[in-house]
Amino acid sequence: MPIEIDIAHVARLARLALTPDELDRYRSQLAVILDHAARVQAVDTTGLAPTAHPLGLSNVFRPDEVRPPLDVDEVLSQAPSARDGYFEVPPALEGA
């Protein structure tokens, strides 16, 4: 069964501005890979819990101690745009 992929929707979810040609190419490549992966879906895994950590660790906490944070200037020196100690971005809301 050929796999239907709404590649434009997937690219939007992934925040990737791709051209129509690129979308076409990725859709056909994904179809091949997913077709190969379909073998996984044929396996009976009834009664098996999914693995989250290979050694089974869960709910790990470190002591809640105050530690020195990263240096703000050093951190912001890597930002594409920063102002007054904040990261700066274009408007997040239309009309803002």
Partner: peptide, 29 residues
Amino acid sequence: IRRILLGTYSLSAGYYDAFYGQANRLRTK
């Protein structure tokens, strides 16, 4: 980009359990 798209697809609504969930059950096996 190929892997981000693949991962985004397999985690997207309606596919999570069939792909990521199933793969991790197979991993337990």
